[in-house]
Design a protein around this nucleic acid. Structure first.
Lengths: 262, 262
DNA sequence: TTGTCACCTGTCAGAAATGACAGGGCGGGC
DNA sequence: GCCCGCCCTGTCATTTCTGACAGGTGACAA
């Protein structure tokens, strides 16, 4: 367990950061994200464009696949073009996922300059050319690593149309904020789905035994009903969940939070 | 979306709160919790005892079942006695779960006084008598509601051996901290289990198709191998996961984070 | 070389699940 | 009274899964 040093923010900054973290915790819709969280961040430091993307990061395959996207002032056409390019080949994304979570970058003619002083010369990745086409010249990009295997991670970028150097205060603020922005994105994504499947008591009960590997006969013994009735409940709950067999029913139920993980 | 007013903390407090939130984010073992997070909180306000419990809260049954417990200066015998009593009948817990997440309480002879001014007179709940037996007279208890259905929630208590009144600053600090303490507890709990089950590429692949409700034949078509081989992989992954059939294999894999929820 | 491991394939009997048919009772809301 | 959801039960044919038997390849490390 190690924590980076962050000595560049004042008490007043800290209060604003706390307020922003609160808005992240309270945000439970896309609207909240745009109308409450983003304005709160704008009180902390200035930026012209923002992109908050949530996706999966497969360590084994070194692959980053964005799944949800929130952007501020970035036209849809930018994302269409960007999606077509290979994310992982973007030098900033690549560096992020290589263990440098917080980065500052800027562009000069044909070069991407990272905050390590490193420059990525031509052949320039298409994404860099794309950024310059849209008039974006510098920004901060943070990656929030997935909490566990198979979980989502975020790539969070705030950028400007001017060529600005790295500001330690902004960097420190971002290192405080990004984990909570990630949580907010994650929560929002989960709110999107889940259209209220209601199982009856018996169905939940049967489902919980299924999860534990019990067969219909086993369950019939536990519940004191006939095996046929257990199959009846299984059939109904599969229909409600939209599953075509038991493994899928269990998977859907767990992902919808209808039964605990245990 | 609504946020409570919190006007009782200073810029300096805010910096310390941010630091504490950082320790919560970085804590990934029980040791971190005791040696880094708790001392950090002690820099913010003083307390003699603490208990951080993580458990499940079944809204339908109004039932709170603690699953993990971290305590500071509270002897094991206290918890043994407390566990035997009915948690939900504890007036503070009951109030918490009724939608008052942050509470201050104190004891006088035979009474529990809540911060609403309400008093819970005898017959006193056994837990109250128990607290007084151990010399605990007042404290703050916060409940962090589960993020989604089937998810865990926390009950977090900081208390003292003296009869102290409600301090708005402490209350505000706690309302900032508790969501992150909850996250830390949650993360620690998940770190506790998961003894590294390693599936081969093919096994994960097969597992992911199982989760989607595909039969062995379906999977054999997708992967271009024989149905027998699919069964072979399924047999192996069930053995590795300790499952006796496919539904259980999927449930275990999801709970261990070996495959995504989707 | 020998060993291990992932990967692949076959057969077979018995167990389990699926999905259709049929029927019954009980309680609550309109 | 009727409808609806929940709960319960039966039979049957077909499909799928389980768990044992048997065997093979190629890669990589000790």
């Amino acid at each position: 367990m190690s924590r980076p040093e962050r000595g560049h923010i004042s008490g007043n900054d800290a209060l604003l950061v706390l307020e922003t973290i609160e808005t992240c915790l309270a945000a439970d819709s896309d609207q909240d994200l745009y109308e409450t969280v983003i304005p709160c961040i704008q009180k902390l430091f200035s930026f012209d464009y923002a992109s908050l993307t949530l996706g999966t990061w497969q360590a084994a395959q070194r692959k980053w696949s964005p799944q949800a996207l929130y952007s501020l002032n970035l036209p849809g056409s930018f994302w269409e073009s960007y999606q077509k390019s290979n994310w992982i080949a973007d030098p900033v994304v690549a560096e992020s996922l290589r263990g440098r979570p917080h980065q500052h970058w800027s562009m000069t003619a044909g070069q991407t300059i990272l905050d390590t002083g490193e420059t990525r010369a031509p052949p320039l990745h298409p994404s860099a050319a794309l950024l310059m086409d849209y008039g974006i010249y510098s920004g901060y990009t943070s990656a929030v690593a997935p909490a566990g295997p198979g979980e989502s991670c975020s790539m969070i970028t705030f950028c400007t149309g001017r060529d600005r150097g790295l500001d330690p205060r902004t960097r420190d603020i971002l290192s405080h904020l990004t984990p909570h922005l990630h949580q907010a994105l994650l929560r929002n994504q989960n709110n999107g789905k889940a259209p209220d499947i209601l199982l009856s008591n018996r169905e939940s009960e049967v489902l919980n035994w299924l999860k534990l590997g019990k067969s219909s006969w086993d369950i019939s013994m536990v519940l004191g009903i006939s095996e046929r009735t257990v199959n009846f409940h299984v059939y109904n709950l599969m229909r409600k969940l939209g599953a075509i067999n038991r493994p899928q029913a269990v998977a859907i139920a767990v992902s919808r939070g209808l039964i605990g993980l245990d």
